[in-house]
Amino acid sequence: MKAKFLVPLALFLLLAGFLAYGLKLNPREVPSPLVDKPAPAFRVAQLQSPEASFALEDMRGKVWLLNVWASWCVSCRAEHPVLLELKQRGVVPVVGLNYKDTVPDALGYLAQHGNPFATIGVDPQGAVGFEYGVYGTPETFLIDANGVIRYKHIGPLTRDTLDKVLLPKIAELSRAG
């Protein structure tokens, strides 16, 4: 038993490994139980034309993104250029869900920063957001042609997540559909 003195060292390295791994995790990203489940149905008024409505069924047959945003949300501003780029590339339609916001504020925000959304539904009380387990904006759901949530991104979208995670998933789903 010459290597006995190595035992505490090995235990320490094991513990340090666990702690180092824990440091890299983001406690804000709580895995959603909704992934791979049918997206909760909803019908809401549209932001730009309140008399028209938007419903989940409207997007059946398409692969699309549901982006939960608000004019008061600072991180939403950070991801806004990414959403605009996504629209420019025309890969998938991005539907906005304006969460706990007022119509004038939301319209002002879009006028100032540009509108990356194909359609925008309003959720002033956050009732739809609640059904989707939204706990912090921005949140982005990838929904497939059958209306099943395939992926949820919490926090601002970055070019990196777009290229490495979202676009490959979208390509895969589009091929399957």
């Binding site: 709580v30 895995p31 959603s32 139980p33 909704l34 609640f130 059904e131 989707y132 387990g133 706990y135």
Partner: peptide
């Protein structure tokens, strides 16, 4: 609530 927000 767990169905919407998870075990967390």
């Amino acid at each position: 609530l767990v169905a919407r927000f998870g075990d967390f």
